[in-house]
Design a protein around this nucleic acid. Sequence first.
DNA 1: TAGATTGTTAATCGATTAACAATC
DNA 2: TAGATTGTTAATCGATTAACAATC
Lengths: 217, 217
Amino acid sequence: MAVSGKNKVQAQVPEPTLKRLPGYLYFLERTREEGIINISAPAIAKSLKCDSTQVVKDLAYTGIKGKPGVGYNTYELIHSLEIFLGFNRINEAFLVGAGNLGSALMAYQEHQSLGLKIIAGFDIDENKIGKTIGGIHVLEYNKMFSLAERLNVKIGIITTPDHAAQEVAEDMVNCGIKGIWNFSPANLNLPEEIIVQRTSMSSYAAVLLHRLQNPTT
Amino acid sequence: MAVSGKNKVQAQVPEPTLKRLPGYLYFLERTREEGIINISAPAIAKSLKCDSTQVVKDLAYTGIKGKPGVGYNTYELIHSLEIFLGFNRINEAFLVGAGNLGSALMAYQEHQSLGLKIIAGFDIDENKIGKTIGGIHVLEYNKMFSLAERLNVKIGIITTPDHAAQEVAEDMVNCGIKGIWNFSPANLNLPEEIIVQRTSMSSYAAVLLHRLQNPTT
DNA sequence: TAGATTGTTAATCGATTAACAATC
DNA sequence: TAGATTGTTAATCGATTAACAATC
């Protein structure tokens, strides 16, 4: 029953750490391109303008071991981050709502690692069905039900207008989807066990505006 | 010198609070549409699935007064949130990079309050220049310099490919822009006083994937 | 008045930062 | 060995949660 190789209760990874990890990964990929073999936490911290002890702690969560006095092996570090984040696996996802935001995400992952692979987009708009965006086909919404089951897709992305979000989410759950990335501001009402990640653009705008209007100091 | 009307040092608003406020605003706008005049913190908390004392605290930051035993006046609460977030003002912004993500943002704000108004998009791609997306014109990149000065725009949004982000950011700063919303994963190197809000899609993906792979209990 | 809810103050919890020992 | 950096443990800081008094 117990997973071997870990004889201690796995420390819960803080969400702030989790959010920072892809940033390290991105930076290290650039570093590797420059042919740098070893890199230290203070060096990373300086480039990313954050605290070096935080870098050490964050990286430790991925299970990597660094060499005192030297730092980390760039290649090992990238590998460790990818494994930990699950970015090495193919995390297949469906996307519903092939409007502007949906199209953006489909096109985005062509050039940028999102950590997940959108394998199909769905829409009810006849004008969008049949299109190919970022190499991904936009299919008729009703096709989602049979395809999800057949392909065993566990992740759904909602980029529909607000009013459709709840219904789409429920459909996704009925398709066997376990995790939903919701880009609409709607508050989804779903079974407890479904993992919902809400991404609200206006939250970021709020922080930016507030910091502009209330300068520190 | 001192701003009147506040005889206490203004309490710093926690960033988590700031990020939650637009969510309340969205919910309350729906509530108002239903004709509900008063709403209590526990009622909000129940709908948004969060803690009621947190709702009370968050709302208190906006300066609103509620009535014990009754709650808040919906209209006043919306007003208070808008004022506090600065969403009532017209916060004009430039967007550089009219690709998929840039287009998505331009189209998004047509239907959704982002808290800021994109007044022009810029690109170097001949095929994009001249287009109108979400009612916003895409102009030649070089036009940004003269326009920023003339229109006194203080906010810039970067939705370019990574490799262009640093250069665009520097140009924006030279245009007098004070706050930058950066959608590229690049780490911008800019003067201290420039406020940079980074929005990394892969951070959200990382959290979703991790929670899917490491269920809590 | 009674009940419900706000608003404030205290306690808890968790993340960040600091200190320092271990080690390459 | 000496210097630099990791890794761990302790201290600090800040946000969330709980408790309770004030009030409509």
